[in-house]
Amino acid sequence: MSMTDLLHAEDIKKAVGAFTAVDSFDHKRFFQMVGLKKKSPEDVKKVFHILDKDKSGFIEEEELGFILKGFSPDARDLSVKETKMLLAAGDKDGDGKIGADATFESLVQSW
């Protein structure tokens, strides 16, 4: 399964293009732009599993740095600052990772 099976390619392209500058990434705006807010919890979990590259059931800090590439292979990596901010927003129990449970869904729906 790919992102374009769940989200519109044009929405992904626009969202990735909106955050090309380093330290410009805003996860709330990005998730809204790609259309995740409108998706069912099941579809949000499918997106999570696409982003969970090592299939551990968690998105760890190193995977978060490449989150935009999970949506579009030619996207940039997040900066260290952006990665840490995204982790802080989604890591509710302080274990250094974001779980597939309601944690990722709440991160997506958090606006």
Rank of each mutant, 00 (worst) to 15 (best):
Lys14Glu: 14
Asp5Gln: 14
Thr20Ile: 10
Leu107Pro: 05
Asp26Arg: 12
Lys46Glu: 08
Ala88Asn: 03
Phe71Gly: 10
Val22Arg: 15
Ser2Gly: 01
Gly70Phe: 09
Leu68Ala: 13
Asp5Pro: 00
Arg76Cys: 06
Asp43Asn: 07
Glu42Gln: 12
Lys28His: 15
Glu62Phe: 13
Gly70Thr: 11
Leu68Glu: 11
Met85Cys: 02
Pro73Cys: 09
Lys38Arg: 14
Asp11Gly: 02
Lys92Thr: 04
Lys45His: 06
Pro41Thr: 02
Leu86Pro: 03
Lys84Gly: 01
Ile59Asp: 02
Ser106Ala: 14
Val22Tyr: 03
Ile98Asp: 01
Leu87Tyr: 05
His49Pro: 00
Leu107Gln: 04
Gly70Gln: 11
Ser110Gly: 13
Phe30Met: 14
Gly94Ile: 00
Phe25Lys: 13
Phe48Gly: 07
Val80Glu: 12
Thr103Asn: 07
Asp91Glu: 02
Gln32Thr: 14
Ala89Pro: 00
Ser40Arg: 06
Gly99Ser: 14
Ile98Ala: 07
Leu68Lys: 10
Ile67Asn: 04
Lys38Glu: 13
Arg29Thr: 13
Val22Phe: 04
Lys38Ser: 15
Phe31Glu: 07
Lys69Tyr: 07
Ile98Leu: 04
Met1Ala: 08
Leu68Ile: 12
Lys84Asp: 08
Asp52Thr: 08
Leu87Cys: 01
Glu42Asp: 08
Asp91Asn: 03
Thr83Arg: 13
Gly65Glu: 09
Asp91Ile: 00
Gly17Trp: 09
Lys55Gly: 02
Asp93Gly: 00
Asp101Phe: 05
Asp101Val: 01
His49Ala: 04
His8Glu: 08
Gln109Asn: 14
Ala75Gln: 10
Leu7Glu: 04
Asp77His: 06
Val80Phe: 08
Lys69Gln: 15
Ser110Ile: 07
Phe19Leu: 04
Ala102Ser: 08
Phe31Tyr: 15
Leu36Phe: 10
Val34Pro: 11
Phe71Cys: 13
Ile67Ala: 07
Val47His: 01
Lys55Asn: 14
Glu62Ala: 13
Trp111Val: 12
Gly70Trp: 05
Ser56Trp: 03
Lys53Asn: 03
Glu61Gly: 01
Glu82Thr: 08
Leu7Phe: 09
Gly90Gln: 01
Arg29Cys: 10
Met3Ile: 14
Ala100Lys: 04
Gly90Asp: 00
Val22Pro: 08
Phe66Gln: 00
Met33Ser: 15
Leu107Val: 09
Gly65Gln: 12
Glu62Asp: 14
Asp101Glu: 09
Pro41Ser: 05
Asp77Ala: 02
Lys14Ile: 05
Ala102Val: 11
His49Met: 04
Ser72His: 15
Gln32Glu: 15
Lys37Asp: 05
Lys97Ser: 03
Gly70Asp: 12
Gly96Glu: 00
Met3Ala: 10
Phe66Tyr: 00
Glu82Ile: 06
Phe71Ser: 09
Glu60Phe: 03
Asp26Tyr: 07
Gly65Ser: 11
Ile98Phe: 05
Ile98Gly: 02
Glu42Thr: 08
